[in-house]
């Protein structure tokens, strides 16, 4: 049996058919070609598959694809403005917060959700916001630097 579901990804409307047990991550990657969210632990623990579902960060590996019906999904592909990277993406590069890069799209989405919630996050809020994202290159210090840098730049820019 397969089901057909319509929703938007980064503002673009999609209709996809898939097995009803498929995760939203599988639908995004394998049906629609959005490879930004990464498949890693596949159990909702590592955060590499983080996307925004109606502006809330979720682990797309443990969300039913069916639950995206009618929703607005944001993946890391939706952040850049044409050729210009989003300030969070640029801050990750400038702070050298990327090593192997596998966790990076999930981090960037978690940080986007954080900075959408508050423009001036406290250190505790920053740590909490990314506590569901694991980096096994152990680049946490630089990741936290990048988040602070992104917050500063976005405050100045706004």
């Amino acid at each position: 049996m397969s089901i057909t579901v319509s929703f938007s990804v980064n503002g673009k409307r999609h209709t996809a058919s898939f097995e009803p047990a498929a995760s939203l991550l599988e639908v995004l990657r394998d049906r629609l070609g959005y490879k930004g969210p990464k498949l890693c632990c596949n159990t909702g623990e590592c955060g590499a598959c983080t996307i925004l579902l109606d502006d809330k960060p979720v682990n797309s590996c443990v969300v039913l694809g069916a639950d995206a019906a009618g929703a607005a999904v944001t993946t890391v592909e939706g952040l850049a403005n044409g050729g210009e990277l989003h300030p969070i993406q640029q801050a990750f590069i400038d702070a050298a917060a990327v090593q192997c890069g596998y966790c990076t799209p999930g981090y960037i989405i978690s940080v986007k959700a954080l900075l959408d919630r508050t423009k001036t996050p406290t250190p505790a809020e920053i740590e909490e916001a990314v506590s569901g994202n694991i980096c096994r290159c152990t680049g946490y210090t630089k990741i936290l630097d990048a988040i602070r840098l992104a917050a500063e730049r976005m405050q100045q820019g706004s």
Binding site: G44, G47, T50, L53, K56, P57, V58, N59, V62, V63, S110, A113, E128, A129, S131, G132, N133
Partner: peptide, 9 residues
């Protein structure tokens, strides 16, 4: 309770 991602779901 787990991470923000899980708490949202």
């Amino acid at each position: 309770f787990a991470s923000l991602q899980i708490r949202n779901t």
